[in-house]
């Protein structure tokens, strides 16, 4: 079925123009990135009528560039562009990004954007969880200028994010990670064309002695309205000497912080059990990127 009718199509050619249009139309406009989520909503009859569809296509936001040790990703960079970008390839600390982008089918890789996937604020998506593991933030641009929002503060609830009136997501920033950091991402799905039953993004940093000097373990999928961090698990890891046993114990701890939901795809109990397995496996996968074998 056709999408909800918009009266106008606008294709602003700069970020400033995007803000102007957003300010002008207010609630009556919708942003268009890759369209893969938007059209899905419209085709299911979940969108009300709107004045304008504002495409970000020509706003010059389709870049992936290194800045110092950090990575700046334009909102309109597609999954494919991010995956193929040289600053991402083969970097252990960015492994979670590459992992997360292994899951979507080619048609989605080619169309879906980093901005769209994040601004959908849908906890079942993968990339945002990988980005949380990396300490990522978004740059919101609006009438008041630009501001950075940590991803964990960005997501408020299902389909709700922290962008204010007239603001849009201009780019995503992955900060420089300490040396000897690695990350990984894993997802439970039913077939290769699925949204996550559960997913996990992890990042670990170790020191020269092999002690863990920082860990992030973040979950998405059927865990509620926003991705969550497994703080107890992270604390367990930090400062510890890594071993298979430790990884296992820390993974058991995720149940303190992750409280999954039950829905038609799986029960909370199943998700909680699987969360422990995924966490352990993702940690092992990340550490393998640093040449440490625990699996």
């Amino acid at each position: 079925m056709a999408a909800a009718p918009f009266k106008q199509y606008r294709s602003p050619e700069s970020s400033q123009e995007v803000v102007e249009l957003l300010t002008r139309y207010g609630e009556a406009a919708v942003l268009l990135a890759g369209g893969t989520f938007l059209h899905g909503l419209a085709a299911r009859g979940l969108m009300s009528k709107m004045e304008a569809l504002i495409s970000l296509q020509k706003a010059g936001l389709d870049y992936v560039k290194p800045q110092g040790g950090s990575l700046t990703i334009g909102a309109m960079a597609t999954f494919r562009e991010l995956l193929d970008a040289s600053p991402v390839k083969g970097r252990p600390e960015l492994g979670a990004i590459a992992d997360a982008l292994e899951y979507p089918p080619p048609q989605i890789l080619n169309a879906a954007t980093v901005g769209g996937s994040t601004a959908s604020a849908y906890p079942l998506f993968d990339l945002p969880v990988a980005l949380i593991a990396l300490g990522g933030a978004v740059v919101a641009q609006g009438p008041g200028g630009r501001r950075e929002i940590k991803l964990e503060q960005f997501f408020l609830d299902y389909f709700r994010h922290a962008l204010g009136k007239g603001e849009f997501l201009a780019e995503v920033i992955v900060p420089k990670l300490p040396d000897r950091s690695a990350s990984a991402f894993l997802k439970l799905e039913t077939n290769a064309n699925d949204l996550a039953l559960l997913n996990v993004g992890v990042r670990v940093t170790i020191d020269e002695e092999g002690l863990c000097r920082g860990a992030v373990v973040a979950f998405g999928g059927g865990i509620g309205g926003v991705p969550v961090r497994a703080a107890t698990c992270e604390t367990y890891l930090e400062g510890s000497r890594l071993s298979a046993k430790l990884l296992d114990e820390s993974a058991q701890a995720v149940t303190h912080d992750v409280h999954p939901i039950s829905d038609h795809r799986a029960s909370a109990r199943y998700r909680a059990t699987a969360a422990k397995v995924l966490a352990r496996r993702a940690l092992i996968r990340a550490l393998a990127r640093l040449g440490l074998e625990f699996g």
């Binding site: 294709s11 268009l32 369209g35 059209h39 085709a43 569809l53 495409s55 296509q57 048609q107 169309a111």
Partner: peptide, 11 residues
């Protein structure tokens, strides 16, 4: 490759 069902013609 893209899904033409979710590609807006205007783009």
């Amino acid at each position: 490759a893209v899904y033409s069902c979710m590609t807006y013609a205007m783009t």
